[in-house]
Design a protein around this nucleic acid. Structure first.
Lengths: 207, 207
DNA sequence: GGCTTTCAGTGACTGTGGTCACTATTACAA
DNA sequence: TTGTAATAGTGACCACAGTCACTGAAAGCC
């Protein structure tokens, strides 16, 4: 892994900092569906995906709810603040597909915050982005009906996975949206009849 | 307004910074229900309440939805990031009661970020707090039934207003929760029957 | 006092989406 | 190929909460 590869994903950071990140951090492969962080765990590291993406879920006893995706060059900034205060995570993070990521220790981030103030700018940017995404999530939940929510979910997922079709189990969609399988089946059928999506042998396309 | 008064509310900041805040920022009185920031407006100042509180709402065409309160010594950190990037606000801020606040210009904050790195720590703390509150809000919306949501809303409101009873119109509750008046009437009656609250001539107490 | 406006209370009705119970289909391994 | 598990599809049912159309009660004002 060289400087330019990382720079491509993290254009906001200065070279010295990237060098230091490379020196002290590991690059790891995370298979799809690996749990990276559980609710209640102490946050000790910060993963930054270079390929693939990470799903961040709100975790309740019974149901989960997808909050947002962490994509290339981003980071779960929210667990970072938890990390800074030695706090426990309130969310769960799972690899959405096979993902390669840089793993940075919170301790190092603390050092870099002092040495490289530019990192603050990046963090504020990321905070802002996450906040926007959370607002969108709230908006969808409160104001959209389930069929619209499913549609938005599919569009978003297509965007994040950089493909033009999705192979998803109804079960998965239901879990991400905090709904139930049968209902998703119904909704998908409805969307198909309305010519908003196309489903052929389990592969969903948006029209 | 002297250094100690402010220090009391903002214990994380160093004296020099507080002095500079005092020198360059105004203290203003904001009457209840004054709109401080609308959705879509550019964020130019950062209000920090010294007494009273500010309600932050998600604003949709028809309905609003209460996101959280900004209390003494806190700040709407989320509009701050919007401010940093010259962005527009995604939320609406209203004085929840008669409020006194320090008004800091974003331009000054930008300067101070470089001069006083300690402000970053404070901001991360606040970011984290807002994030937690948003998560709680999402949680309540998705997983709680309306009666439980109303109950949590009342408890929270009591906390924020530092009183032990609330004089609220059903209308107001409905607006904050994105529901409708009649439904709130029904729910309050139910909560009363269940001995969770007590309502006497429009004044609500929690039991 | 009466008059008007605002707020609260109530019953009837409805749509959405969650649950249950079951069948049909597909995928895959022995 | 057949058996088994996983996934999808479907109809019946129901609870929650939103809407409508009112009536009743309080509050404010001349």
């Amino acid at each position: 892994m060289n400087l330019n590869t990382v720079k491509e994903h993290l254009p906001y950071l200065e070279d010295d900092l990237i060098k230091e990140i490379l020196k002290t951090s590991d690059k790891v492969n995370i298979p799809k569906n690996t749990v990276i962080l559980k609710k209640g765990e102490y946050v000790k590291v910060l993963p930054i995906p270079l390929s693939g993406y990470i799903k961040v879920l709100h975790q309740q006893e019974i149901k989960d709810l997808l909050l947002y995706y962490i994509q290339e060059g981003e980071s779960c900034i929210m667990s970072f603040s938890a990390g800074l205060e030695n706090g426990k995570s309130k969310v769960m993070a799972i690899a959405g597909e096979d993902t390669t990521a840089i793993i940075i220790s919170i301790e190092n981030v603390k050092l870099w915050l002092k040495k490289y103030p530019s990192i603050n700018t990046l963090f504020y940017k990321l905070y802002n982005q996450r906040y926007q995404e959370l607002l969108t999530t709230i908006n969808d939940i409160v104001f959209l009906k389930l069929d619209e929510r499913v549609y938005e979910y599919l569009r978003n997922k297509l965007n994040v996975s950089k493909t033009n079709s999705l192979k998803l189990k109804h079960r998965e969609i239901a879990e991400d949206l905090g709904s139930s399988r049968e209902v998703i089946t119904r909704v998908l059928k409805k969307l198909e009849i309305e010519n908003k999506i196309d489903v052929k042998s389990g592969i969903i396309k948006i029209l």
